[in-house]
Amino acid sequence: MSTPAQYYQSLPPVSKFYGVACLMTTSALYFGLYDPWNVALSYRDVFTRFQVWRLISNFFFLGPFSPFFAIRLIMIARYGVLLERGPFGKRTADYVWMLIFGALSLLVMAAIPFLWTPFMAGSVVFMIVYVWSREFPNAQINIYGVVTLKGFYLPWALLALDLIFGASLMADIIGMIAGHLYYFLTVLHPLAGGKYVLKTPRWVHKLVAYWGEGIQVNSPVQRDPNAGVSFRGRSYRLNGNRAQTSTTPSEQQNQTNNSGDGVAFRGKSYRLSGH
């Protein structure tokens, strides 16, 4: 079995970032560092008080610590990771674009009064689950060891559970709508002969390349070789050879002349026999 640290290191970058961000947001609330309504989505505050952070911050608040919060975080760790490793394997920029498109779609829907919800992190989670259910429709899912169903029906089963537990369904429903819109534009519409209109923008590829995490096949931009590197310097091998991350031709020539064949000390040697 892997340790918690090994499990954390094994997570793909986007799901890891989003899950940790949601956990840190709720932890900050637990310690009383902010009022949750200061990060809630409010178009009135955005346009009259210029509190533009509300357009982003509401996507990272899953609520206070509770069973509801734990279930949503597990859904990110389960279905978000499976989606990122499966259909979006080696397509980190495409996965980031899916989340950005989903967030923009949710912001548009929230502008309609009866679809508005103050916190839409749960909607993003349901979007992830919905896209996963369409990518793995025949996967066998066991819910609480009681019901076994196919992956295609998972979002609807979770929606029914929220209804039973008395939770608000609006965030779940608009998340499923955003997920269906993305899946329709990227999979169903092109398969029906339509034009692929939701290509990942170049700036998203640049963002992922600058971030230096994940992999994107056929990326239109080159990954920044310095991304994710906080220090570059010289290193020394155990046999005395000096290695350097980047050197000029003149430095390489000097290193060749002064290397000493990797021997740190030269002198006479004697056999044990004395000869």
Rank of each mutant, 00 (worst) to 15 (best):
D261M: 14
V197W: 14
L161D: 05
G262A: 10
Y183C: 07
Q6N: 07
P220G: 06
Q255K: 12
T186R: 11
L272I: 11
Q253D: 08
V187S: 12
V14F: 03
I100H: 01
R78M: 06
I74K: 11
P113E: 04
F184P: 03
W97C: 02
I141P: 00
A93C: 04
N218L: 10
W156M: 10
W116Y: 05
V197T: 15
N254A: 12
A110Q: 05
V124Y: 00
Q216M: 08
F17I: 10
Y144M: 06
P201T: 08
K268A: 12
W97I: 00
G233S: 13
I164C: 09
P13Y: 06
F69K: 03
M109P: 00
F152R: 14
Y34T: 03
E135G: 02
Q216H: 10
T3S: 15
L238S: 15
G233R: 11
F126I: 00
F59D: 01
L163H: 11
F119G: 00
V46H: 02
W156H: 11
W132L: 00
V124I: 13
F65D: 07
G267K: 12
Q140W: 02
N239Y: 11
Y7P: 00
W97R: 01
F88Y: 15
L23Q: 11
A70G: 06
N239E: 12
S246C: 08
F88M: 04
D224F: 07
T256A: 14
V125E: 01
R202S: 09
N257F: 14
Q140P: 00
T48C: 04
R49N: 08
R85G: 09
L99D: 03
R49M: 04
P190D: 06
I215C: 08
W211D: 09
K268Y: 13
V187D: 12
G102T: 02
D45S: 09
I143C: 03
G32Y: 08
P67I: 05
